[in-house]
C-alpha cells in the first residue's frame, strides 16, 4: 500500500471513529427516552404505569382482605418543609376507598413551591395502590409559615397478592426553585 493511500485510509477511519464517539455522546441523552419506552413496553417500572380501564364484566375479583397501611414522610436536610401524616397507621381492606390527611408547613419566611414524590414499601405494592387524589399530583405553593392540610384518597386493588400484609406509603417533599413552576 502506498504512503498516500495509507494516509487516506487512516483519515477515513479517523472520521468514522469520530462519528461513533460523537454519536455515543448523543446516545447518553437518548438513553432517557429509551429507558421510558423500555419500562412501558415491558411493564417493569410499575409505579408510573398508566391504568387500563376494563369493562369489569366476566372478571371475578378475589375477595377483599385486611391490610395495614403506614404513612410516613421525609424532608431532606436544609429544606424548609415540615410534613406530618395526620394518620400514622390505619387498617384497611382491599377495594375500600380510604382518605387520610397530611399536614404540610412552610417553615421559612419566603414563598416556596414544593413537589412531593411518593414511594411504596414493598415496592411491588406500588402498582396496586390506586390514588384518586393526592397533593403529589401537582406542585404546591406555600406562603411564608403557611400550614395546609391535604387529603390523599386511594383504593387498594383487590387483585393485590395476599402475601402483602402491610404497605408503607412514604412521601419525600422537594423544593422547586423559583421560576420553574
Amino acid at each position: 500500500m502506498g504512503a498516500q493511500r495509507t494516509q487516506l485510509a487512516n483519515q477515513r477511519m479517523l472520521a468514522k471513529l469520530g462519528v461513533i464517539a460523537i454519536a455515543m455522546f448523543g446516545f447518553a441523552y437518548a438513553l432517557i427516552p429509551l429507558y421510558r419506552v423500555v419500562c412501558e413496553v415491558t411493564g417493569i417500572n410499575q409505579v408510573v404505569k398508566a391504568d387500563e380501564v376494563e369493562s369489569g364484566a366476566g372478571t371475578e375479583l378475589p375477595p377483599p382482605f385486611a391490610v395495614t397501611m403506614d404513612f410516613d414522610a421525609s424532608v431532606q436536610a436544609g429544606l424548609p418543609w415540615e410534613v406530618r401524616p395526620v394518620t400514622r397507621t390505619v387498617q384497611v381492606r382491599t377495594g375500600e376507598f380510604i382518605r387520610v390527611d397530611y399536614d404540610i408547613t412552610n417553615r421559612s419566611d419566603r414563598e416556596v413551591t414544593g413537589q412531593a414524590i411518593p414511594r411504596y414499601l414493598p415496592g411491588a405494592a406500588g402498582e396496586y395502590v390506586k390514588k384518586l387524589d393526592c397533593f403529589c399530583f401537582r406542585q404546591q405553593r406555600f406562603k411564608p409559615h403557611e400550614t395546609r392540610r391535604f387529603p390523599v384518597v386511594f383504593v387498594i386493588d383487590r387483585r393485590m397478592p395476599a402475601s402483602i400484609a402491610s404497605i408503607t406509603l412514604s412521601y419525600t417533599v422537594f423544593d422547586v426553585p423559583a421560576g420553574r413552576t
Binding site: 471513529l17 461513533i20 464517539a21 460523537i22 454519536a23 455515543m24 455522546f25 448523543g26 446516545f27 447518553a28 441523552y29 438513553l31
Partner: peptide
C-alpha cells in the same frame, strides 16, 4: 473507550 467515554461525558454534562 470510544463507545463509553462519550456516555460518561454526556452524563456529567447533564
Amino acid at each position: 473507550i470510544i463507545a463509553v467515554m462519550p456516555v460518561l461525558a454526556g452524563v456529567v454534562t447533564m
